[in-house]
Design a protein around this nucleic acid. Structure first.
Length: 590
RNA sequence: GCGCCUAUAGCUCAAUUGGAUAGAGCAUCUGACUACGGAUCAGAAGGUUGGAGGUUCGAGUCCUUCUAGGCGCGCCA
């Protein structure tokens, strides 16, 4: 991290703060009592329900579910719906006539609507009472840990598999994107009621591992004085040399490098450890590690092959065993077992099918795989294998979240990502250079299906102009209010506070923005798109900074200070919640 | 040749899943510090949403086609 930019020192001197913190309830008497929202639903839910009720009285179907939207132009009101337009056909009436009838049929006052207008082809625009709307903030203060949480998953188990790198080298920036995405998606699902396990699948069997062993052997023998001869398809990175040196030091009995299986085990263990450290530095924690090799030792690969053969979707040709994946939408059939001339091994997708059978049988009726787009051709194969087995696995199983490739620019040039060449930027490099929070945010502020150019120099130089600092600063500022005011923020409850005084435009905008959080979480979780949270954070931070700059909290008339403390607390908690979903820290001061 | 992804402001990206005048950040320009942190704020400028058709009350979003880029298409993993 570069040294912080020098900035002017504050000239004000402040007497040392006493450490006593005042409880708000001690300071001010409770004067006003407002009823809480019914059953903790948001004002939008209440408005939607009232709209539905009114629509049914006009003859709309029972399952009518109006869509409420925030108008792009705030002058149109707080909420808008196109319900009248969607009802035009089923009811056989003009949209604007339906809109008029809807307004007449609604009990607007009960849902805090102060004005309802018809606009354009038949939009209905609603304006809400500021105090009614602001009361939604109380749900944040009352249960900050559940704000934005929904129960969509009903506790069902879901496994999110990501990173899943071969233990043949350190983790590169593409794995970093997976780690950030997979972890954030997992947290999003937890927020929406799923019982999530994060899983890392180790391809610790097969040709790549054999190459790793031989590469290590070559380096071990080179240490003993032999000429260095890295085998065809082997690994050239310096890290192999380091592993070989440690192996020699710890295995004096095998200085000649004859024990290939010992070297393989040693190298795999060393690289797995290395990857664990990388993920630890990134703040990602996996619940389970699944080893490909165990699929063989437990007989699951053979069992899967037998199942596929029994299904009648296999055939032999040219001495190899094929799976008729074209029965399931593939454009050509795929080899399961190589011919004897090619070694007679299973191709890699066979253990992959076996692995996904275990996901299903381990009780995960939903599975999400986060992978690079270069793996997309395997989707059809794995799903075809699961369908061919005909053991009750649904056709869309598992879900895939594919992210496009990450290219790395450094010094104005693209850095080649190649394990074999040993020249690439690792996740650890990025974390060391720009910090964990900034790396995560950079990965997550973009949609996964667009390509990502990670310019290392730019990321480093931007580290102070970075959006993540902007967001975290907004959080720290809210914390600063309570710090300076010597108020214990956790005692701010909003009980008896008249939130109707939050009538400034900047305040209403901030309130609306905060209350959009649950809908944003739902949208992000439904679509497995964490970048929506990043965008929400940026907008919330902007609204927070604007409000902070325009209006003061401390030192205002009591009623205003009390209401604004509620807003400051809600902003602090809301931003912290968003940051937490993305795996970023929410510093109280920066 | 086939399949998947992408194309939006100078740059990096959004756009509530088909809604109203397409929005942010960075960069540029002009302003604002003796109040809770200026790592901030206010404002300006920046667009034929790659091109052309189509679907409808309404398209950046859906369909067709063309162009450009990325990734795949192996008895590699």
């Amino acid at each position: 991290m570069p040294a912080p930019r020098p900035r002017p020192r504050a000239t004000r001197n402040r007497p040392p703060a006493p450490h006593r913190r005042r409880r708000l309830t001690d300071a001010w008497p409770v004067a006003i009592h407002l009823p809480a929202l019914p059953d903790a639903v948001t004002h939008a839910d209440a408005l939607r329900a009232e709209l539905s009720r009114a629509a049914r009285t006009l003859g709309a179907p029972d399952d009518v579910s109006p869509i409420l939207e925030r108008p792009r132009d705030p002058s149109f009101g707080d909420w808008a719906t196109n319900l009248a337009m969607t009802l035009a056909k089923p009811l056989g009436q003009k949209p604007r006539d339906i809109a008029t009838a809807l307004i007449a049929a609604m009990d607007t006052a009960s849902v805090g609507v102060t004005a309802a207008e018809i606009a354009g082809p038949g939009f209905l625009n609603f304006r809400l009472d500021p105090g009614f709307q602001a009361r939604g903030l109380l749900t944040i203060l009352e249960s900050p840990d559940t704000f934005g949480r929904l129960d969509i998953g009903h506790g069902a188990r879901v496994v999110v598999e990501f990173v899943s790198a071969n233990p043949t080298g350190p983790l590169h920036v593409g794995h970093g994107r997976q780690a950030a995405l997979g972890d954030a998606i997992s947290t999003l699902l937890e927020y929406t009621g799923w019982n999530v396990d994060r899983e890392f699948y180790y391809n610790d069997a097969g040709a790549q591992i054999a190459n790793l062993a031989k590469s290590t052997q070559a380096q071990v023998r080179a240490i003993g004085g032999a000429p260095l001869e890295i085998p065809e398809g082997g690994y050239h990175g310096d890290y192999i040399r380091e592993i070989a040196e440690r192996y020699v030091a710890e295995h004096p009995d095998d200085a000649a490098g004859d024990n290939l299986s010992a070297m393989q085990a040693y190298a795999v263990a060393a690289l797995r450890h290395e990857q664990d450290l990388d993920m630890q530095a990134f703040g990602v924690k996996f619940d389970t590690y699944y080893l490909e090799s165990s699929l063989y030792t437990d007989g699951l690969v053979n069992k899967t092959v037998e199942g596929l053969q029994a299904s009648g979707h296999t055939y032999e040709e040219d001495g190899a065993l094929f799976l008729r994946t074209t029965d399931f939408g593939d454009d050509k059939d795929r080899v399961m077992k190589k011919s004897a001339a090619k070694g007679g091994d299973y191709t890699y997708f066979v253990p992959d099918v076996a692995y996904h059978v275990t996901k299903w049988e381990r009780g995960y009726h939903r599975a999400i795989n986060v992978q690079g787009a270069d793996h997309h051709s395997t989707i059809t194969r794995v799903r075809a294998g699961l369908q061919a087995l005909d053991i009750g696995i649904p056709t869309g199983y598992p879900d895939y979240v594919l992210h496009q490739m990450v290219t790395v620019m450094k010094g104005g040039e693209e850095v080649k990502i190649s394990k074999r060449a040993g020249s690439y930027v690792t996740v650890r490099d990025l974390i060391d250079e720009v910090g964990r929070d900034a790396v995560r945010y950079f990965y997550l502020m973009r949609k996964g299906d667009s390509q990502l150019v990670f310019d290392v120099d730019l990321a480093r130089s931007q580290s102070e102009e970075n959006p993540v600092y902007y967001v975290q600063m907004a959080h720290a500022r809210m914390c600063g209010i309570f710090r300076v005011g010597e108020i214990d923020a956790t005692t701010v409850t909003g009980q008896g506070v008249d939130l109707g005084v939050l009538s400034e435009p900047a305040e209403q905008e901030l309130v609306k923005q905060l209350l959009d959080f649950p809908a944003t979480v739902k949208g992000a979780a439904d679509n497995l798109e964490p970048h929506r949270i990043a965008a929400w954070l940026l907008e919330t931070a902007r609204a927070g900074h604007t409000w902070y700059h325009k209006h003061h909290v401390l030192g205002e008339p009591e009623a205003i200070t009390r209401a604004r403390l509620v807003l400051a607390r809600a902003t602090q908690l809301g931003i912290a919640a968003g940051l937490r979903i993305l795996g970023l820290s929410a510093p109280e001061r920066m």
